[in-house]
């Protein structure tokens, strides 16, 4: 297939961070993800698009084993992070999630202070030797989350008191405070207004310098704006995966074209 060979060529030029082969996900009797093969590259923003219920969020949650917390969910196939199978028996899902951070659809700050929200991850993973080091980690994470200037004077105010957009950037700062290698974002802007969305998108673009970012989004404009690679999911299948520009200008699959032009959804 044409697009597969394109993919192979790309893989040579950039490191593959996560590679998934023949991934199947079942929720009880429902077959939610069918035979998905995908290679996610390092220091790249990859967007998953597709209509509601197509399995893009489910697949995203496979990448840090968040689906383990759901009893009826079963995952088969191989997902390799840096060549290591993350569903291997020896892999501790708790350690994995520290490496593969996640930001959720709705901002979910803990009912603690802003400082404690960010310090939560570093504390449980023992990343700081003393208070000064922890302060430094928190400040760095908040600066990279592009929220430092807004909260530096009220670090000990509750995180739940911030506005929606600030809360989401706080959650991103919280996720990057544990120094993950991959950042998964499940519709991070769906609960935000346009201005907050623009701030978060700008932030995602900056995060690309150091992380591999995977973002699930319902907005095709957002996928076009922030991502370099785009994967289109439909009814549990990965229909097409290519450079974002190719997907949006010259898709090879008729279903992709129908979706991005708004005919199926």
């Amino acid at each position: 297939m044409n697009d597969m060979s394109l993919l192979e060529r790309r893989v040579d030029t950039k490191d593959t961070k996560i590679s998934a082969r023949k991934v199947q996900v079942f929720y009880g009797d429902t077959h939610a993800i069918k035979d998905v093969d995908v290679d996610i590259q390092d220091k790249t923003v990859t967007a998953f698009i597709g209509p509601s219920g197509c399995g893009k969020s489910t697949f995203l949650r496979c990448l840090n084993r968040m689906n383990d917390t759901i009893d009826i969910c079963r995952v088969t196939g191989d997902i390799m992070l840096d060549g290591e199978d993350i569903y291997d028996r020896r892999v501790d899902p708790v350690q994995l999630r520290a490496k593969v951070g996640m930001v959720f659809q709705k901002p979910n700050p803990f009912p603690k202070s802003i400082y404690d929200n960010v310090a939560y991850g570093p504390k449980i993973h023992g990343l700081a030797k003393n208070k000064a080091e922890l302060d430094e980690i928190v400040e760095k994470a908040l600066r990279r989350g592009a929220i430092w200037n807004e909260v530096k004077d009220r670090l000990h105010a509750p995180g739940t008191g911030l506005s929606g957009g600030q809360q989401q950037r706080l959650c991103i700062a919280r996720a990057i405070a544990t120094e993950p290698e991959v950042l998964l974002m499940d519709e991070p802007c769906s609960a935000l207004d346009p201005i907050a969305t623009a701030q978060v998108e700008e932030l995602i673009d900056e995060l690309r310098q150091s992380y591999s970012v995977v973002i699930v989004t319902h907005s095709m404009q957002q996928a076009a704006r922030v991502s370099q690679k785009t994967a289109f999911f439909h009814l549990g299948n990965l229909v097409e995966y290519d450079d974002t520009s190719t997907i949006f200008t010259n898709p090879s699959d008729p279903r992709t074209e129908s979706y991005i032009t708004g005919r199926i959804g």
Binding site: N64, R97, K106, A175
Partner: peptide, 25 residues
Amino acid sequence: QSLRDGSYGLGATKSETIKQVILPA
């Protein structure tokens, strides 16, 4: 549930999540 997800997503164990997030909430 979003608070639990947030905590698990940061690599916390179940009892850490309960002690530090759920019970305070």
